[in-house]
Write a protein that binds this DNA or RNA. Structure first.
Lengths: 325, 325
DNA sequence: ACAATAAATGTTATCGGTTACATTATTCAC
DNA sequence: GTGAATAATGTAACCGATAACATTTATTGT
């Protein structure tokens, strides 16, 4: 038995002829090692639980792809969970750490799925928080400087002459929303423009919510010459509604997105947006987590990935006179 | 030890006072059962490997969501694998069945990841093939009648008066492509129109490939008044290119898709397409697989889910005279 | 050729639950 | 109150790979 194990794990310790014999036997008996036994014995599952708010989101799909590849390279498997942003579900699955079904967790939402008494004094929680991160994370994080990126986008709009910029936000509970709003305000202030609460509209990152928000924008009374959407899906939804109202995108009203999903390039007009290195988010998150699992990670690693302003044709110079909505 | 196990598994066999004592001890010691040990002992992992060609595909994202929910309801976890359509990767992960790391496989591509000698004589392979299915599957399948659906779409175009219909296909290796092509031909023949090989263009289900195919359509000499795309992404890519050439969608040239992804409704114009019950695909696949795992499935279950023709505004009456491309 | 050493192989305990079986405690009938 | 039946609890083997340790076999030096 031990010889078989050695033949597979450290062949150099086994004489060539025994090795050959064992190899032949393995072949004949069609022997397959029971890796559950290995995992059980070693206490390492090489599984990583990934908490995804919605796998149906194009951006997350890219992040997942990045995680997948990094995990595969290190011999880890991903247990993907579509949480729908439900905290109970997240806590439920995070519990797989305690029941030895997984070694670590990647959380893509700003919520700590571990209860306080889980806090492991002698070490880090085996968790990495990516994309949307907690304000006071207990674990390594991977994020974008959303505030700076939002400011950059706003500056772009301001430079085009826009003075009345509406914003379609994500859920108020999301730190992403707050960060991007702050960046938006920063840039307005820097440009000497006043921030107007009435021009902030709620959305939930879906196409439909962008459409609905644009609908509300059209039926209110403030002038608007540009709309800053907090993601591409909402921007595309908004564009759909604005076009239905007979408005020309860029000429009459500018619309910007955030994420640079594949559809952004092929929409009409192509969408001005902020590109995020989605795959790199996933890759970095997994590698950080593996570092944590190996015990060689500092408590407060905070990776900030670069954004890129991508100017396409959905934004243009502000019209001399804001169009009547 | 056994008493603890009984308290958790069959409390009715344990006297109330012992039960209380055990429960208290579990509480105090913060005892968490090692489920790896359970899985190892029982030989059941309650893991399901899901082979996804691309998680970044919006349609698959919906399928995954359906699987996720069905699996969770039955206490199974999904091991998601982004295979990029690579057979070696698929075989690799399918091997997790043999190494007792997973109980079954859901394959979303027309490829059998098991080698022939894996064929388990006394039972079914623990696999279900969904969405894109094998011609001669060894396992239960969940599919759409792609041929009928494609014919329905083609009929729609024919009824609008289109006589010169191009098709942007998926990869030739995919049965989906063949099925949809057959349906296309069926409908042409039924309408007394001739099938023209030169109007078949290759794509790979991505936005870019739709764009590129449309580019090729524009630079060839046959008249074309409608384009049947084998999925929505390619249709949206094609529309992008056609618009760039100054063509009006529906008026000058009709474009249809397949899948009814979320973006189809919000594109300009909204896309005429075939709706597939994506979540139901996933749900059905998982439930079939669990039946197989429980040994209560017939060998040749073939579930065919309904499609729905969704007519929006990307298709319109054929122009009296095909526009010069 | 015979130690002394190194290399190869064999043996056994172990991980943490579950299950079959053995033992002890309780209940009930007469 | 005793014995038979049942209920409750304890004991030990087991799943399969591995690692520590024990033993056997091969190699080297003198």
């Amino acid at each position: 038995m031990a010889t078989v194990s050695r033949t597979l794990q450290q062949p150099e310790l086994v004489s060539p002829k025994t090795r050959a014999k064992v190899t032949r036997a393995i072949e004949q008996l069609n022997y397959k090692p029971n890796l559950m036994a290995v995992k059980f014995r070693s206490g390492k599952t090489h599984n990583i639980v990934v908490l995804v708010p919605t796998v149906a989101n194009v951006f997350f799909a890219r992040v997942i792809r990045g995680m997948q590849e990094a995990a595969a390279a290190e011999g880890y498997s991903l247990l993907l969970v579509n949480t729908m942003g439900d905290s109970a579900t997240e806590q439920n699955y995070a519990r797989m750490i305690h029941t030895s079904q997984a070694d670590g967790v990647v959380q893509l939402r700003a919520f700590n799925p571990f209860s306080d008494n889980d806090a492991d004094d002698q070490g880090l929680l085996p968790m990495v928080n990516a994309c949307e991160i907690l304000d006071t994370p207990q674990c390594p994080t991977v994020s974008l400087d959303n505030r700076l990126a939002a400011a950059a986008m706003t500056e772009h709009l301001v430079e085009l002459g826009h003075q009345h910029i509406a914003m379609i936000k994500g859920p108020a509970s999301s730190p992403l929303t707050r960060e991007r709003m702050l960046g938006f305000k920063d840039a307005l202030q820097a440009a000497g423009l006043k921030y107007c609460e009435e021009l902030m509209f709620d959305g939930d990152f879906t196409l439909q919510s962008g459409y609905d928000a644009a609908d509300r924008i059209l039926s209110q009374s403030h002038p608007v010459s540009a709309i800053f959407c907090e993601n591409d899906e909402m921007a595309l939804g908004a564009i759909s509604r604005l076009k239905a109202a007979g408005l020309r995108i860029a000429e009459d009203i500018s619309v910007s997105g955030f994420d640079n999903i594949a559809f952004a390039k092929f929409s009409d007009p192509p969408l001005t947006t902020i590109a995020q290195p989605a795959e790199e988010f996933g890759e970095t998150a997994i590698n950080l987590l593996i570092d944590v699992l190996k015990g060689k990670a500092k408590r407060a690693v905070k990776v900030i990935l670069p954004y890129q302003l991508i100017i396409r044709n959905s934004t243009g110079p502000a019209p001399a006179q804001p169009v009547r909505l």
